[in-house]
């Protein structure tokens, strides 16, 4: 029983990171109908910016989060403006290949920057090794903090999309660009801001992931786990991405403990296969029934 509780918390906390990266996938996909395979690398880059502000500038943990998110928002908008916008309208395949290329470039750049390179680093956190015990269950504060911070971010994003002018404009743009134009929404600028938002969320995810995998130039490959999370949730649904991430995280944690070695790594994909068999459009997918 105590094992199960600990596994669940560990799984949910990893799932939170998957969820945030998946959220980035979904935001960009809904807006520009492009799957951004550089999402994991945006996360990696965000973690490196946090590292620098923490170790070089010596800023406190909370300030590093704000700094990394802000810098990455600018990076995301720049990538959209310079690399993605010129190729929009070309076949989706072209755009996807370009995002893969962007990912490679980012990994390359990171290894060339002095102080970053190919080493593995740690970002100091205020939670460190502390644990929280309740009735025999030992829970690392680190994991609880990840869950709490993800929940807080989701709440902020909810308010943002529900109430702010720009958030509502983003929703409108992702539903119908042509109509959005004639409501007076500057669709291109909004798409650029969606890339910025998505990259900022990725930076947040990178900082949360840092204590688990440490910061290194290949940490972005976790995107390969977040992608199934987005699919499970029904690519295109924001709540779906969160739930999908949590499911993948929990299933992975349980599979790693109860099943023979090796299952942990394929668990995410088994979940995707099962979900797609039972609900082809994903858990929260919009089922499109064509009227005849």
């Amino acid at each position: 029983m105590t094992d199960l509780a600990q596994l669940l918390v560990a799984g949910i906390s990893t799932g939170c990171v998957y969820a945030l990266v998946a959220l980035g996938f979904v935001l960009i996909y809904k807006a520009t109908e492009t799957v951004n395979f550089a999402q994991g690398d945006l996360m990696m880059l965000g973690a490196f910016f946090a590292l620098t502000s923490s170790t070089v500038f010596g800023w406190p943990y909370w300030a590093t989060i704000v700094f990394a998110a802000a810098v990455m928002a600018v990076v995301g908008m720049t990538v959209e403006r310079i690399v993605i916008r010129p190729v929009l309208g070309h076949p989706a395949f072209t755009v996807v290949m370009i995002t893969i290329g962007v990912g490679y470039v980012m990994r390359g750049i990171v290894t060339m920057v002095p102080g970053w390179g190919t080493e593995t680093y740690q970002i100091p956190t205020p939670f460190a090794e502390a644990v929280w015990t309740a009735g025999g269950v030992v829970l690392p504060v680190q994991q609880l903090a990840v869950i709490a911070m993800t929940a807080a971010l989701c709440a902020v994003l909810y308010v943002f999309f529900r109430f702010t002018r720009i958030g509502i404009a983003m929703q409108a743009t992702s539903q119908n660009q042509l109509a959005a134009y004639y409501m007076g929404i500057p669709v291109r600028r909004v798409n650029m801001m969606i890339w910025g938002l998505s990259a900022a969320v990725a930076a947040f995810a990178g900082i949360l992931l840092a204590p688990v995998t440490f910061v290194h130039s290949n940490m972005g490959f976790i995107g390969l786990k977040a992608f199934p999370a987005a699919v499970v949730g029904g690519f295109g649904s924001v709540p779906g991405a969160i739930v999908g991430g949590l499911i993948i995280g929990v299933v992975e944690a349980l599979a790693g403990y109860y099943l023979p070695e090796g299952f942990k790594d394929v668990a995410a994909y088994v979940v995707v296969l099962l979900v797609l068999m039972l609900r082809p459009s994903g858990l929260f997918g919009e089922t499109m029934r064509k009227k005849v």
């Binding site: 109430f163 509502i168 409501m183």
Partner: peptide, 29 residues
């Protein structure tokens, strides 16, 4: 017909008010 398909009629009409909305980001939040 180019509507926001996954929104309600009311929400669609409210987006029509986009150009008349003047409040600032932090006020909205």
């Amino acid at each position: 017909i180019e509507l926001f398909e996954h929104a309600t009629v009311l929400q669609n009409l409210l987006i029509g008010r986009h150009r008349h909305r003047r409040t600032r980001f932090w006020q909205d939040l």
